[in-house]
Amino acid sequence: MLRPIDILINSFAQDKLGLEKLLIWFDTLAIIDKRKAVYWSRILLEQSRPDNELIESGIKQIPLKSTFTPIVLLNTKSFKIALTKIVELPDAEMKKAFITLISLFKVSDEKRREEWCKGICGHEWHDLDKLNIILNDEYLDSLRGKIQ
């Protein structure tokens, strides 16, 4: 069963939920839950198995300044080390970390859906329409402050 975090991040990755609405949800979280959201974003990103070329092109699509710490880490460290350091950033960096990870996940998961999963996978998160969730403000309000 998918958790709210899975539904929201995958909805974002599949262009069913805009970044601004996802960030409104993120902003409602307590800092401990923001850290959990960043942690789960990292897990989802790793599971999408981006290669070095995809990581490089994905970094360019992150809607943050290239001088922000999470992006600098991705540009200067190996992928695994950068991810470890990103999830360990100070509290004040959690929103930038979240944006970085979900934006990179979006690029990576799109490629995964097109190349590996197109019409053949049984991944529940790749067929969100079967959940009959309407991603309107009422639904998002019901998830405010919730990760699990």
Rank of each mutant, 00 (worst) to 15 (best):
L74M: 06
K118M: 13
F79L: 01
A37D: 06
T28D: 12
W25Q: 06
V72T: 07
D15R: 02
S41W: 00
W125Y: 14
Q14K: 11
E20I: 09
D129F: 08
G18P: 04
D137K: 14
Y139E: 01
I5T: 10
R144H: 04
D137N: 15
K146G: 05
N75M: 13
R35L: 13
N136P: 02
G119A: 04
I133T: 01
I7W: 01
Q61S: 07
L8G: 00
I133P: 01
G122D: 12
I5E: 10
R144A: 11
I43K: 12
A97L: 10
E138L: 09
E115W: 05
T28S: 15
Q47R: 15
R112D: 13
G119E: 04
S48T: 04
N10T: 02
V87I: 15
V87S: 07
A97W: 08
S108H: 08
I99Y: 00
K60G: 11
S41G: 14
E138F: 05
W125E: 15
L128V: 03
G145S: 03
D109V: 07
E110F: 15
V107M: 06
G58W: 06
N52K: 15
Q61F: 03
I32L: 12
C121D: 12
I120S: 09
N75I: 08
C117A: 12
W40N: 10
Q47V: 01
D141I: 07
D15A: 04
R112M: 14
T84F: 04
E115K: 13
W116L: 14
T100F: 00
I147S: 05
F12E: 01
W40R: 09
G18K: 08
M94T: 12
E46T: 11
I99P: 01
T84W: 02
R49H: 12
N136G: 03
R112A: 14
L19Y: 02
P63A: 03
L104D: 08
K65F: 13
S66V: 12
D33W: 10
K96G: 03
W125D: 15
L101T: 14
S108M: 07
S11F: 06
S78I: 02
L131W: 10
